[in-house]
Design a binder for these strands. Structure first.
Lengths: 326, 326
DNA sequence: CAATCAATTAACAACGTGGTTATTCACGAG
DNA sequence: CTCGTGAATAACCACGTTGTTAATTGATTG
């Protein structure tokens, strides 16, 4: 590979002059600059960012750490974050394990954006991250964590969904998803807030997959009366639930309404375009990119930020049918 | 950040000794080695890969260049390639524009895996890539290109789909997708090969999106009799077409059979699990990763490789209905 | 004509490693 | 006692840059 020394030799100047010329420094005569640039071009010179980064201490590299690439939401976030970072002239490297995160640190990535599940799944990571020099931003937490983070207010999102359904007259609402206490509580609280009396019968535990959502509805307890509306805790669950509902002969939204969590574009292409609630992934990515870059630049900013969920109305919610027997 | 010099000072040895100790060289006494390692650990030493790479000339970085991250197939391939590269101890950096590819080269990425559309969309890229030192592998081409590449034999895939439909008795087959000559010809040839007489009426031009597939069927020419089977040229088109068919009251597969291109896992979650044909993305990623690493290591290998498409039978194909009036 | 000054360029240290060569040291053989 | 000898370590160069400092010009001025 041709280096600035090669160019210097060819041009009959010192390599430091070449360096300045390539960086368009005012310390070099215009004519010399032009001549050097021309020679560099003709020799097919490509600057070596490794060397530059070694001396400058900055790599313009940001790691994105996540866990399960199976859920389309991660693919989506990856795209969005890549876009947002590219706009700020940063490159993105993906990591899906603590080992890879470690390597990013050894590569001297300037910053790390880490999906909350990755740290919660590897608890020792949290303290390590705090010690490292790479600026770390955790995104997608439900609860505050001892690192700069972006929180998704899932509580507010669930509340929004419940209220929305309530405004359509629904009084018995099923909740399909994790039986994790915090989420269940958020739902039950929201229901109460909406002036309804929640019942544990309204909970439909499900794995966070299409299968999970499908089975939760398809093989639900037969003794529990069918709610007039459901909230699915993520995109896959919701799609699975929709499939099961249709198979069971329910019309959506005439017989049963449905709201899904996670604002993914392809939710509109389901059998019935699905009304969704959740953070805008574009907003998340934009905020995370700007925030982490600010952290790198030493600019002040909030250590915690909450992304407000938004509700996107589509066709899967309608007025509650009469069979609502409350 | 702590460097080997800091460790050397603390340990009272020269920094070259520390370097050797960290690399477990036999030139250092075992006891010294242990002592140095202990000090390094206690000081929270993290090796600097930038510096190492500068001297070694290798970065263990591989760029993945692609175009449209909107189609889930790209997200899928990204995941798969990441997985395959991580297994070989390489990191992956995403690039979606020629500029970003350029930067990868300046970062001295050891190799590049580039999706064919990216080079075909930016023709000047091809010759540049040839000149660069990063080993380049183009994947997903339809035709041979003057660079090492992995070809998807779409011709064979289409032929496989046609044959499969033929074996179920279908005699009028619709082809939904690009009106690009090469693909259309592949289809028409395959039909002829299967002993049928193709007609231009069988072509349903469509943009490569869900909308495209939907509109192609929903607003098809009313004077053309409905084929008994369709082939959709990619995953989105196929899903759109399926939606349209169902909306028009056709039962799939009883009234109309459907095969989609692109073996994406989520095709099984469509309204009707869709039979697909296409390259296995896992195989593509594994081959590409191994091949590009071999190229980096200077190992010999084929400049061109063809991935044979495979057909995954699901529920969307059945025997042709009687209305087949040929 | 020497001194001064601005403009230009050259020389060099540094970044943190990995390798190569030189030095030191202890020890045993002659 | 001296001379290898081998083990262990130190010293140094290179990788390709950037930034700082020193040197070299050519012109200007008193």
């Amino acid at each position: 590979m041709v280096s600035i020394k090669d160019i210097a030799e060819r041009a009959g100047v010192s390599y430091s002059t070449v360096s300045k010329a390539l960086n368009d420094s005012p310390l070099v005569k215009e004519e010399t600059k032009r001549r050097i640039l021309e020679i560099a071009r003709s020799m097919g010179y490509q600057r070596n960012l490794l060397a530059r980064h070694l001396v400058s201490g900055r790599t313009r590299l940001i790691g994105f750490g996540l866990v399960n690439l199976g859920n389309p939401i991660f693919a989506n976030l990856t795209i969005q974050l890549h876009r947002a970072l590219a706009a700020l002239d940063y490159r993105m490297v993906i990591a899906i394990s603590p080992d890879e995160i470690d390597l990013l640190n050894q590569m001297r990535a300037d910053g790390l954006v880490i999906w909350a599940d990755l740290v919660s799944r590897h608890p020792h990571l949290m303290e390590e991250l705090g010690r490292w020099q790479a600026k770390t931003l955790v995104i997608g937490t439900d609860e505050p964590v001892p690192l700069p983070h972006v929180r998704f207010d899932r509580r507010a999102g669930i509340a929004k969904a419940v209220e929305y359904l309530r405004s359509f007259g629904h009084r018995r609402i099923g909740f399909i998803g994790s039986s994790q206490e915090i989420k269940v509580r958020a739902f039950l609280d929201a229901v109460q807030q909406a002036g309804l009396t929640p019942s544990l019968d309204w909970l439909y535990p499900a794995e966070p997959t299409f299968e999970g959502g499908y089975r939760a509805i398809r093989y639900a307890r037969p003794d529990v009366p069918m709610p007039t509306a459901f909230i699915g805790l993520n995109n896959l669950i919701t799609k699975g639930a929709l499939r099961a509902l249709l198979e069971l002969g329910y019309r959506v939204p005439q017989d049963v309404s449905l709201i899904g969590y996670d604002n993914l574009p392809d939710m509109q292409f389901a059998e019935v375009p699905i009304t969704t609630v959740g953070p805008s992934l574009e907003e998340v990515a934009d905020f995370a990119a700007h925030r982490v870059v600010d952290m790198i630049d030493g600019k002040p900013g909030p250590d915690a930020h909450v992304i407000e969920p938004i509700l996107i109305p589509r066709a899967s919610v309608e007025r509650a049918p009469d069979r609502d027997d409350t």
